[in-house]
């Protein structure tokens, strides 16, 4: 009898999902985009990726030493470093890439309490930090094959763009954002393994298409809309950054609200803003609104009315 009565404290139901496993899945899902970036932009892309990852991991390790609690093994620093590298142009000086990694981990993540406490996506915050600090180096999208403006900038200037090239990724841009095929392949892997779901990316992309169709000035022209969809960091942002567990809303309705907000903001930045791109600022703004979104979309507990009052 006594052997069969096991007393333990909750939680009694445990999931097999670990932080480690999720991070590993994200890294795996980013591999096609990284591989294509290296193929497209040459070995220097690999150097940028390695330097950025080394700087994020090293920063996390050193901060762990200082706090006497190591968190390097949860791989989140690797994901941050990889995402940041995919958001950088291939020509960026290596010390800037490393500085971005330090900023992402130290200022955005660790100072706020580590993984789970960061109020913004560290990789995106670091990208914006670098974008504001070094505007020239961060927008110098020049490499051997494709020199000049990104497709989005060309589109904004009213020029014709080759949508097929944008989908395969043979265009100028940051290391990881160019190839839609590679990004969607990785996203499909994440969707199939259940790491992410379609709520945020789906509502984000649908809202963005509607917004661009209505306000873009070219109606629902398929060529224009597909160029907007395939261009810039939209795919990378929608599937890999907006779905970050820490900085997205927990509530299901909140995730739809979040996605719709991102779609509208990205549309506003791209159409009415001075620059051609707006995904990163839209996601950062959305991250800041997450606590508010969660507060208004909190589901009512059983037997209670919305707002926590008892029925």
């Amino acid at each position: 009898m006594s052997e069969r009565m096991k007393v333990s404290s909750n939680p009694h139901i445990r999931s097999r999902v670990t932080t480690n496993g999720i991070m590993l899945a994200v890294v795996a899902a980013l591999m096609p985009a990284t591989g294509f970036g290296i193929y497209n932009f040459g070995m220097r892309a690999l150097t940028v990726v390695l330097v950025t990852i080394a700087s994020t991991v090293l920063t996390e390790f050193l901060f762990g030493l200082y706090r006497k609690r190591t968190t390097v093994s949860d791989l989140s620093a690797v994901v941050t470093g990889l995402l940041l590298a995919l958001n950088l142009p291939v020509t960026i000086p290596l010390w800037m890439a490393a500085l971005g990694g330090v900023f992402a981990i130290l200022a955005v993540k660790m100072l706020f309490g580590g993984l789970g406490q960061n109020f913004m996506n560290p990789a995106l915050a670091a990208r914006c930090f670098l974008l504001i600090s070094f505007p020239t180096a961060m927008t110098a999208f020049e490499c051997d094959a494709y020199t000049g403006a990104t497709p989005l900038a060309a589109l904004k200037a009213g020029e014709q763009v080759n949508v097929m090239n944008m989908i395969t990724g043979h265009t100028a841009g940051t290391i990881g954002e160019t190839s839609v095929i590679a990004l969607v392949a990785g996203a499909c892997f994440l969707l199939m393994t259940g790491v992410i779901d379609l709520r945020i990316p789906g509502s984000y992309i649908v809202t963005f298409v509607l917004f661009t169709g209505i306000f873009g000035g070219r109606g629902f022209d398929p060529a224009y809309l597909s160029a907007q969809l395939a261009g810039g960091g939209l795919m990378l942002g929608a599937f890999f950054m907006a779905t970050d567990y820490v900085t997205r809303p927990i509530t299901i309705r909140g995730q739809y609200v979040f996605g719709i907000f991102l779609g509208i903001m990205t549309g506003i930045f791209r159409i009415f803003g001075p620059g051609a791109e707006g995904v990163s600022y839209a996601i950062l703004l959305g991250n800041l609104l997450v606590p508010l979104i969660e507060r208004v979309t909190k589901p009512a507990a059983f037997g209670c009315q919305r707002g926590g009052k008892r029925a």
Binding site: P93, L99, A107, F129, I132, S133, F134, P135, A137
Partner: peptide
């Protein structure tokens, strides 16, 4: 030395 321009702007003041 490449100036880190963000420090000349509002966010840099907070940092």
């Amino acid at each position: 030395f490449e100036p880190i321009r963000i420090f000349g702007q509002a966010p840099g003041a907070f940092f």
